[in-house]
């Protein structure tokens, strides 16, 4: 009860400010629009100058975005309809054949499945573990900041360096991991953790979890700071147990943070490249190929730049669709003005 009221207050105030935005489509406030328009007309010369000023100051950023994001995207689309070896002029136009080649390629469809496994696996592993660690670290204890640092260190490490270290640790026979478990009487897989097709993807997932758990914990901890302590006090007064407090107060209020983290994790998993490339190069037997590693090896190893570009466009579209639908169906509830969300609850109450 209490949290919803508190939320409502904050949301109502925020939705008020939203309404203050001049909204030309709205028909409910014709008078206000007119007055705004009149104001605009009066202040036009000043506005023009202001717009120019804005344009001037954001243009460096715009230029950078155009050169390093828009242009490459357009280039990729252009390359994807040609048969091109990576140098020389673009002459051999093949239409959508490259797309067909990519989508009919089992290695690529498997790569998509690997990406999906990594998305699911990352969330399934990092969410409970990260949340658990964040809740533990949120309690007052002596070495709190040291523990937080330790958990966060893997994330700070460059992905390539972490990959090289794990590659050495996971060497069959001579690696640290195999040495340790053989001391415990367990025999590591004969081909090694990264050399066995059935295990390689899970090993990569484990390393990724180690690497990105820190980010999840830090984000969750930040989210926890935003939970007002009065709620805890009130709950304690009402006699709620620690578990009840976490379940009914902390986790629901952590919702927006969890959803944002889920988004970051999903996009990261979709574009996964560095760690896979360092650990396995997409092998053994293509068992860890991701969409990104597929397109890089098609491009740089086989010089089928047209096919690689088609794969990159497909990856872009897949990521875009997933991102937009996530925004639409999951994240929207965090940003929309919240009458609809709170109304049913009110009825209930």
């Amino acid at each position: 009860m209490i949290p919803t009221v508190a939320q409502e207050v904050s949301f109502v105030s925020s939705s008020r400010t939203d309404d203050a935005d001049p909204n030309p489509v709205s028909v409910t406030q014709p008078t206000r629009i007119k007055s705004v328009k009149a104001k605009e007309r009066r202040r036009k010369p000043a506005d023009k100058r202001k717009n120019l000023e804005i344009l001037f100051f954001i243009s460096p950023a715009l230029i950078l975005i155009a050169v390093f994001m828009l242009l490459p995207i357009i280039q990729a689309v252009r390359f994807s309809v040609y048969n091109w070896k990576g140098f020389g002029p673009l002459v051999d136009f093949v239409g959508l054949k490259n797309y067909a080649r990519v989508l009919q390629n089992e290695v690529f469809t498997d790569a998509m499945i690997h990406n999906l496994i990594i998305i699911g696996g990352s969330i399934a592993l990092q969410l409970p573990i990260g949340l658990g660690i964040a809740l533990l670290l949120n309690r007052k204890m002596k070495i709190q900041s040291l523990l937080r640092t330790i958990i966060f260190v893997p994330y700070v490490l460059s992905e390539v360096i972490a990959g090289v270290i794990w590659f050495q640790l996971l060497q069959p026979q001579y690696g640290v991991v195999d040495t340790i478990i053989s001391k415990l009487g367990i025999q590591g897989p004969a081909q090694g953790w990264l050399g066995t097709p059935e295990l390689a993807l899970w090993t990569v997932l484990a390393v990724l979890t180690w690497k990105y758990l820190g980010l999840a914990v830090i984000l969750f901890l930040a989210g926890l700071q935003g939970v007002p302590s009065e709620l805890y006090e009130a709950a304690q007064i009402d006699g709620a147990s620690w578990w009840q407090i976490q379940r009914k107060i902390t986790i629901p209020l952590l919702g927006p943070t969890l959803r944002t983290w889920g988004f970051l994790s999903m996009i990261g998993s979709l574009q996964l490249f560095d760690m896979v490339w360092i650990l396995t190069g997409g092998g053994p037997a293509n068992s860890t190929t991701t969409m990104a590693s597929f397109l890089v090896s098609e491009g740089t190893k086989r010089q089928n730049f047209g096919v690689a570009a088609a794969a990159s466009v497909i990856l872009f579209v897949v990521a875009l669709i997933l991102a937009v639908s996530y925004q639409q169906f999951v994240l929207k509830r965090d940003s929309q003005p919240d009458d609809e969300r709170t109304k049913p609850k009110k009825v209930k109450a």
Binding site: Q171, Q173, Y174, Q191, G195
Partner: peptide
């Protein structure tokens, strides 16, 4: 050699 499927050609002692 064990792990030959993930062994690189010539970089590093492994």
């Amino acid at each position: 050699n064990p792990g030959f499927l993930s062994t690189p050609a010539q970089s590093g002692p492994t």
